[in-house]
């Protein structure tokens, strides 16, 4: 059953740190990162992107800072505890994913919608 679910997923973007894939049947997005697999709806992934982009990286390098950030989204069950390298990795992954979403939208506009 799990294998079947795996097959139906389309990979949106991946890096050495992790990947994000899309289920065409449910429109859910699966984020695999830092040893975790979490499923989000599209608006939730947008919120995660916003939260990650708001992390003050300079502050994380301060001696007084623990060096860890807890990334928690309202309405989501899971949270991430990430160090600065992982934050940068997740930032890259999300940036690439949203670039792919926008590219896909532009391609659809050009090929299917514009008469």
């Amino acid at each position: 059953m799990n294998q079947l679910a795996q097959i139906t997923q389309t990979e949106v973007f991946s890096t050495n740190f992790g990947s994000i894939s899309h289920c065409p049947r449910t429109d859910l997005l699966t984020l695999t990162f830092s040893g975790k697999t979490v499923t989000y709806k599209y608006p939730c992934l947008q919120r995660l992107n916003k939260v990650i982009n708001q992390v003050d990286l300079a502050k994380m390098t301060d001696a007084s800072h623990s060096g860890l950030e807890i990334i928690f989204l309202c309405g989501a069950e899971d949270c991430f505890v990430l160090d600065i390298h992982e934050i940068l990795g997740l930032k890259d992954l999300l940036h690439g994913t949203f670039t792919m979403f926008n590219l896909n939208s532009t391609i659809k506009d050009c090929l299917q919608r514009v008469i």
Partner: peptide
Amino acid sequence: MKDLVRHKSLLSTE
């Protein structure tokens, strides 16, 4: 892949 950006919203992020 479905056009999730456009399906979700008419508005761009900006």
